[in-house]
Every structure is written in structure tokens, then in C-alpha cells.
Design a protein around this nucleic acid. Structure first.
Length: 296
DNA sequence: CTCCAGGTCAAAG
DNA sequence: CTTTGACATGGA
């Protein structure tokens, strides 16, 4: 190991042989709100205190503003580059016609390993909200409370703020973030985390249902938001977020089993797709949403 | 104008 | 334990 990344310039590293990977699909699949397309097919990606300019050329991905150590210690895990998605997708094929189509459509999707606290705040904001609005709110939270970690193309790059930094926001800043009724949820949740009422660092060591139960103690975190947090920051692939899109999918294709009961549909998903149901869910979510866009 | 968005919460049956 | 309505905001 350790020979995956090659230096091809000052702060520029490449990794070859990365198949089943599409930055655009990952970006548009509703899991990452801190990608910014700085030019055609090139993205500024921020993760914790790290940032990089990321692009892909066939099976090669290129990162700028990084180091070998950062590639190995941070970006490999963030982009889930060590996982064999080809084999994973093979294991899904033939289970279900609609999933087969969804996988072929979203062939470059991956589940990112993002920061736990960031996912908690992000998906509280996501509840009953539009994706562009979610992204705007998150951008403002970072600008108002986050630590500057760099600059690119004349613009300052901010880390996602820590809980303690969010506590210091003024009311005018809160108003500017436009969270609506979710503002009080975030305030409460941030207080609970600072006061150690729940220890989020310890969540990954719990099994999925226990971790979900813990997360749901937080204000604004219900079953679906908890599942998103588990899936996108803790690699808990047996979490199966049931949102409005998945309800449409499941009720259209499995009307008998679902009968409108969300919790029953969720367990059906896990029953159908097993311990990687959450990844299957992401293919279904992306496919359904893109199909809906194209109908317009 | 009304409807809806990667739902959650509190009240009530 | 399940069902119901309110909830901020802005774009379609």
C-alpha cells in the first residue's frame, strides 16, 4: 500500500484505476452540500479543515492543494476509494428490476464519509426543505461561524463550524441564515452536544439501531434525518432513509407491501436489499429524482 | 394564488 | 403506539 497516489506537480496528486466514480453524480445525489463547481467538471471540495480542487479524467482522479499524507489519511476515506463498488453493485443486480436500472443510471455514485457533526446540522436543515435552500443556509453558516482555512480564486474557504462556534452567532446572523422554524432545533441540538448530553464521537461504535436511537434524542432529528447521518458520516449502510422520493418509489413499485406505512416500507427496503440497503437507497433516490427532473 | 420541499414535534386519539 | 396539523421560507 501507499503507492496509489502519484505526485504530478506542486501539491497535485493523482490516483489511477478509480472506476465506478463520478464527481457530478455524487454532487447531485443530495448527500454533499460542500461541493462547488469552480469550472466545468472540476469541484472545490471541503472536508473538516481540508480542501482540494478535484477533477477526473477517465479512471483517474486528480486533487490539487493536497499532500500525499492527506490523500492517504483523509481523501481515500472521504471518497470511499478503498471500497470495491463494482463488486458491491454486482451483488445488487437481479434483486429488483427498478434497482437494476437505477444502478446503471447512477453508475458513478458513492457514499461519502463526511463529518458527523456537519451531517447532523446539515440534515436537520434538510427536513421539509429544498436542496438549493439547504445549500444556501449551509454556505452562510460556514461564512458566519466557520474558521477560514484557505483561499481559492479570490474567495475565502471556510471550514464547517464547530458547535461552540455556532453558539456564538448573533441573532442578526441567525436571521441571515434563513433556517425558518429549524433555527430553534439547531440551537437546541448544538447546546446538547456542547453540554455532552450525547457523545457523538462514540456513535460509530454503536450498532445502527442504537446509534439511531441516540441521534433521535437531538432536537430536529427524527428517523429519516438520523438515517442520513448514519449513512453519510458513519458508513452505517443498513440505515435506509425514507424521504418523500423513496416513498414515491416504494409505493409505485411495491404498492401491496407498503400500503402507505413508512416504517413498514423502510423495513421492506432493508429486507429486500440487506446490510447494504442504504447504498441501494442512494441509487434509487438519485434515479428517481433525476427522472423527475427530466419530465419537466 | 396555491403547492411543495431528502420531516419533526407535540398534542390527541 | 399511530395519526394529525403546524411549522418558515422561497421558488415553481
Amino acid at each position: 500500500m501507499g503507492r496509489e497516489w502519484n505526485c504530478v506537480g506542486d501539491g497535485i496528486y493523482q490516483r489511477k484505476g478509480v472506476s465506478d466514480f463520478s464527481l457530478r453524480q455524487i454532487y447531485e445525489s443530495g448527500q454533499a452540500f460542500r461541493f462547488k463547481e469552480v469550472r466545468e467538471d472540476t469541484f472545490l471540495v471541503v472536508h473538516q479543515q481540508h480542501w482540494a480542487i478535484v477533477s477526473e479524467q477517465g479512471d483517474t482522479i486528480t486533487l490539487q492543494n493536497t499532500t500525499l499524507q492527506e490523500c492517504e489519511d483523509v481523501w481515500n476515506r472521504y471518497f470511499d476509494l478503498e471500497r470495491d463498488y463494482h463488486t458491491l453493485k454486482q451483488s445488487f443486480l437481479g434483486l429488483d428490476d427498478y434497482l437494476d436500472k437505477a444502478i446503471s443510471f447512477g453508475e458513478g455514485l458513492r457514499i461519502l464519509n463526511q463529518d458527523i457533526f456537519e451531517m447532523i446540522i446539515t440534515f436537520i436543515i434538510s427536513a421539509n426543505n429544498h436542496i438549493p435552500r439547504i445549500k444556501n443556509s449551509i454556505t452562510k453558516i460556514c461564512e458566519f461561524a466557520g474558521t477560514p482555512i484557505g483561499e481559492y480564486d479570490g474567495e475565502v474557504i471556510y471550514a464547517f463550524p464547530k458547535a461552540e462556534q455556532i453558539q456564538k452567532l448573533s441573532q442578526e446572523q441567525w436571521d441571515g441564515i434563513k433556517l425558518g422554524y429549524r433555527e430553534k432545533y439547531i440551537k437546541k441540538t448544538v447546546d446538547m452536544i456542547v453540554n455532552q448530553e450525547i457523545d457523538i464521537a462514540q456513535l460509530p461504535s454503536l450498532d445502527t439501531l442504537e446509534a439511531q436511537k441516540e441521534l433521535m434524542k437531538l432536537s430536529g432529528v427524527g428517523e429519516k434525518v438520523a438515517d442520513c447521518i448514519l449513512l453519510f458520516s458513519m458508513a452505517k449502510y443498513d440505515a435506509f432513509p425514507m424521504d418523500t422520493w423513496m416513498k414515491k418509489v416504494m409505493q409505485r413499485y411495491y404498492p401491496d407491501e407498503s400500503m402507505g406505512n413508512i416504517r413498514r416500507v423502510r423495513s421492506l427496503g432493508v429486507e429486500l436489499f440487506g446490510s447494504f440497503a442504504g447504498i441501494a437507497q442512494q441509487y434509487l433516490f438519485y434515479y428517481e429524482r433525476e427522472q423527475s427532473k427530466r419530465r419537466k
